[in-house]
């Protein structure tokens, strides 16, 4: 039954993609717009296949995914440390709140000139931008999560004489998990955007620079179909991560536990 519904949802999606594709193709074929603006679906798909076969787009995708995983990991660790500190100590709470107030509204890209001065232009600069865009919303979510843990769990922990390890592993982590997951979802979305825009700015002309760089290269060489094939990959990864990773994880945890926030 559930599978049926899911299958149906995908069918509906594929149906709409087909419809939009047909509309797209008919506009492209009408010749109203230059193929440099509106390449035909066939051209886009051809260009996508070419870059898959040559390995170019695969290399760029792996590069991007590697960077984002690394940065998300660093971001999550920093966010955890900051939010635990801010929950445990009033002094830190003030500091962390001030930091969030200052840094949260700053788009990472706006920091670019400074980041180039501090870190140069390598992948560490991109990692910095992603970490910056991930940490603050994560800290907000995690500290809300820690603060929202009901007091009754503490009493239960005391009453059942649980050790620190059990309290952390079996109470604090699962109790704040819905907020953690929400934070990771926001973090991922922000990181993905930050990554693509940062890659468009950096990147080695001959080397690999990620999907953002792939699109940028296609742009400067006026390969419009190539731009669209890069966009398709970005969309596909977005859908995969949302549908496969996050939805599965939610089903296995917060939805199963009835703890969705």
């Amino acid at each position: 039954m559930k599978n049926n519904l899911l299958g149906k949802r995908y069918l509906v999606r594929i149906f709409w993609i087909l419809i939009l594709g047909i509309i797209w193709e008919s506009i492209a074929l009408s010749g109203r717009f230059s193929p440099l603006i509106f390449p035909s679906v066939q051209n886009v798909i051809e260009s996508l296949f070419k870059s898959i076969i040559s390995g170019e787009i695969i290399g760029e995708t792996l590069y991007s995914l590697n960077l984002i995983c690394k940065s998300l990991f660093i971001g999550i660790i920093i966010a955890m440390v900051l939010s635990i500190l801010s929950v445990r100590s009033k002094v830190f709470e003030g500091l962390v709140e001030t930091l969030i107030a200052i840094a949260h509204p700053l788009p990472g890209i706006a920091l670019l000139p400074l980041i180039i001065l501090w870190l140069g232009t390598g992948s560490s600069a991109i990692v910095f931008i992603i970490v910056h865009s991930v940490v603050w919303p994560m800290v907000l979510n995690l500290s809300t999560g820690f603060k929202s843990i009901p007091n009754i769990y503490k009493q239960l922990g005391d009453n059942y004489e649980l050790g620190l390890f059990e309290i952390i592993r079996h109470i604090l982590i699962p109790a704040s998990f819905p907020y953690f997951l929400a934070g990771v979802k926001i973090g991922w979305a922000r990181a993905w955007r930050a990554l693509i825009s940062a890659e468009m700015v950096f990147g080695a002309a001959g080397g690999i620079g990620g999907l953002g760089w792939f699109i940028f290269k296609k742009r400067v060489f006026m390969d419009t179909a190539g731009i669209y094939s890069g966009l398709i990959v970005i969309v596909l990864i977005g859908i995969l991560v949302e549908d496969m990773l996050f939805n599965k994880l939610e089903k296995a945890t917060v939805k199963k536990w009835g703890m969705s926030i």
């Binding site: 009754i152 009453n159 059942y160 649980l162 109470i171 699962p174 109790a175």
Partner: peptide, 29 residues
């Protein structure tokens, strides 16, 4: 201090751990 020789049952309907099933709520302590 609280000890295992006196166990409290609260009024709060949320005193079970939502992330453990009924059996493991009992087994865990």
């Amino acid at each position: 201090k609280p000890e295992l020789n006196r166990i409290m049952v609260f009024q709060d309907l949320n005193q079970l751990f939502p992330w453990k099933n009924v059996l493991h709520n009992v087994v865990f302590p």
